[in-house]
Design a protein around this nucleic acid. Sequence first.
RNA 1: GGAGAGGUGGCCGAGUGGUUGAAGGCGCACGCCUGGAACGCGUGUAUGCGAGCAAUCGUAUCGAGGGUUCGAAUCCCUCUCUCUCCGCCA
Length: 425
Amino acid sequence: MHDINLIRKNPNQFVEEMKKRFVSVDINEILSLDEKKRSITFHLQELQNKRNNFSKDIAKLKNKKEQVEKIIIQVNEIKIDIKKKEEQLFKISNELNLILLNLPNYASSKVPVGKDESLNELVFESKEIEKKTEGLAHDEIGKNLRMMDFESAAKISGSRFVILKADLARLERALCNFMLDIHVNENGYEEISTPHLVKDDALLGTGQLPKFKEDLFSTSDNKWLIPTAEVTLTNMCRDKMLLDKELPKRYVALTNCFRSEAGAAGQDTKGMIRLHEFKKVELVSIVTKESSDAELERLTKCATKILDLLEIPYRVSMLSSGDMGFSASKTYDIEVWLPSQRTFREISSCSNCTDFQARRMNAKYKNNNNEKFFVHTLNGSGIAVGRALLSILENNQINKNSVKIPKVLMKYMSGLDKIELVDEK
RNA sequence: GGAGAGGUGGCCGAGUGGUUGAAGGCGCACGCCUGGAACGCGUGUAUGCGAGCAAUCGUAUCGAGGGUUCGAAUCCCUCUCUCUCCGCCA
């Protein structure tokens, strides 16, 4: 949500900023709605002031036992006007809000301006681990191991679901525990267990609503399934006044995430890259406005540390202004190497949302001088569990029927060092 | 699901129709006191919006939305959340 005062002060700059996000705005409509809104507000307040003064007069006159009927007739006329103005104000405010709620955050000045991923900027690529250029796809490996069952999942739940079995199910659990342990013990995050169903307001706060409701699943009683724990974690500070010394707040949660993938028909239909439901470990930081730049670097390092420890090749790139998510001002994507596709695929996205979500959520902090500011919010996957699992399968394949378990996960797998096909029956 | 009780400022908590935006307390900030601190004393301390260069003024906000009234934190209705008891249940 943008500050209308800033837009009014410098409308041309606002248009330029939105252009960087490849969004066109009818600035004249915004300014005219704002103008109308303020004018109506002014007149409404004048009328309210009159009414209040009359009411006070009535109280005084009644104390003196004097007649009040004439004044009451006057006030009743004012009340009709007030009602009219209130209705106008309500309508105009809604119109303006709807426009503002649908405009994305400003891109940071450090972000390359570009329409899509072609202008993303590579900022880091890991070199220690060799990138294999051949190998089976993860779903082939999973099927060979007889531990990944898309057919049953499709029968039970439909397309874009998976069932993991035996050591693969266990590997998923190991990854979850490993990541949570690192973030809690080494990276200073507080572990949170959150609901998976949320109300409209929560999604409005983080920016998924009102614009992206087709990407979400909803329930029969007007709730939504979270597409990421960012929603619940960030909304924990909604409508709060925090003290600057309480910040930063750093939260980590493991949740299932639910996405309709409405715009992705036909993409990644094979395997477990793009599912309707997947597990993800999410990192969220609530910080002061001065520290959000540094926090994004920190948060991204917390995420890449997981890949370093798992010994999976990856790269980090800064997204261009057109490729970033709605609420983000600056985003680093982390991508892992997939030998079967001979390409990097996204496994984490770390974003600084500056005060964009905080304005929507009314999340503030104050300092010793009693000055109030909106908090800055950041989020990033630390990391997507399903995609981590499939990248282990592809990068650690020993032969068509066995996969090496990363050293750091062995203690979470009772010391097991590989997963292999066991011939039963 | 049934019965009852509640939701007031950063927090706790008074307040059932007219200078109540809201007593009191805690917390916090500043000052005095002190060698320094604690204690004590004093002062200040909600947010949004609008007008104004500003001091300031106006307006709205006591869970949310409607209603009654000249006037609502206070009365009525709906919704929502919390708590207690009962039922059900992982």
